[in-house]
Computed example of a mutant assay.
Amino acid sequence: MTVNWSWERAADCLPVLLEGFRITLLATVLGFLIAAALGLAIAVVRRTAPAFVTVPLRMVTEFVRLTPLVVQLLFAYYLLPQFSALQIGVAVLGVHYATYMAEVYRAGIDAVPRGQWEAAHALSLPTRRTWRAVVLPQAIRSTTPALGNYAISMFKDTPFLFAITVVEMVTAAQQYGAKTFQYLEPITIAGVIFLLASYPTSILIRRLEKRLAY
């Protein structure tokens, strides 16, 4: 069986793929914002809250980290039918990656020199101000490259949203192929778009890592 590339088919499927890319990008951006904020909250709570809060929280985060993303998507999709598939996908992506980002934040917080904490205490800074003005700026600075890598990983994991009927870019490519019986062009172009979006971002993250190194 001979498979021939057709630029005409490539041009025909491109608008469909770009619409799927819009969904992919939307899910990634919103999911990352949720993950970054929730992950930071989890890290701070686990560092400051009493054991009766941190122990159950640690168990929940471990459960989320150790179960497949697809299972979590399907569970939430059938449990929460009142929400759209995209809303559920964004939320699950955010919660799933928040458990990983929480560990990154925790490492960043632990990396803040003890002298910084002692200096804030010596100046009688309130606990909230110590976190806001002293600890978190340093922790977030050191963890920014790692968070960027998780953003790329989330972007590449968006095809899993097909499990809950979200038509992101890969699903759009598959649907086009099923309709025309031509998969080469849509799947190839989808892969190229992923590469064109991910590679410059990875270069930017590496440069940012070098600039933030101290």
Rank of each mutant, 00 (worst) to 15 (best):
T61R: 04
V53E: 03
L80T: 10
A213M: 01
T158R: 13
T99R: 07
L86Y: 08
L184W: 03
L161N: 03
A146M: 14
F162M: 10
F83Y: 15
F52K: 00
V70Q: 02
V16D: 15
A111S: 15
Y100T: 06
P137S: 12
L195Q: 00
T143A: 15
T158P: 14
S142I: 02
V95W: 01
L26K: 13
W7K: 03
V95A: 07
V64M: 13
V71C: 07
I189R: 03
R114G: 14
V70T: 08
T171A: 07
A122V: 05
L208E: 15
K210C: 02
E8H: 09
T158L: 13
L17N: 00
E118C: 07
W5Q: 08
A11L: 15
I140E: 08
V70P: 04
V71T: 12
P15M: 12
V90S: 05
M1S: 13
R207V: 15
L69E: 04
V3D: 14
A119M: 12
L161H: 05
V192R: 02
A43V: 08
P81T: 05
P126Q: 13
I42H: 00
A37N: 11
Q175V: 07
S124D: 07
L161G: 04
A91W: 13
I88G: 02
V44L: 14
G177S: 11
T127W: 04
F63S: 08
P56H: 07
L93K: 09
S153H: 07
I109W: 08
Q175L: 12
W117P: 09
I34S: 10
D157T: 10
K156V: 04
L26R: 08
V71F: 02
T171L: 11
T180C: 07
T48V: 09
M1R: 15
T201D: 00
A49N: 01
I205L: 13
A107C: 10
A107K: 09
G94T: 13
G20K: 09
T24I: 09
T67H: 06
V3M: 14
Y183G: 03
G191H: 02
A91L: 15
Y150T: 09
A27L: 13
L93W: 08
I140Q: 11
L125V: 11
P159Q: 09
V70Y: 05
P137F: 12
R22V: 06
H121V: 03
Y183P: 06
G148R: 04
R106T: 10
A146H: 14
L30S: 10
S142G: 11
V112L: 10
K156E: 11
L38A: 14
P81V: 06
A76L: 10
V70F: 04
T127D: 08
F75S: 01
L14P: 05
T127I: 07
T165S: 14
E168R: 01
M1L: 14
L26H: 06
A85P: 07
Q175I: 09
Q182F: 02
I187S: 04
F21R: 00
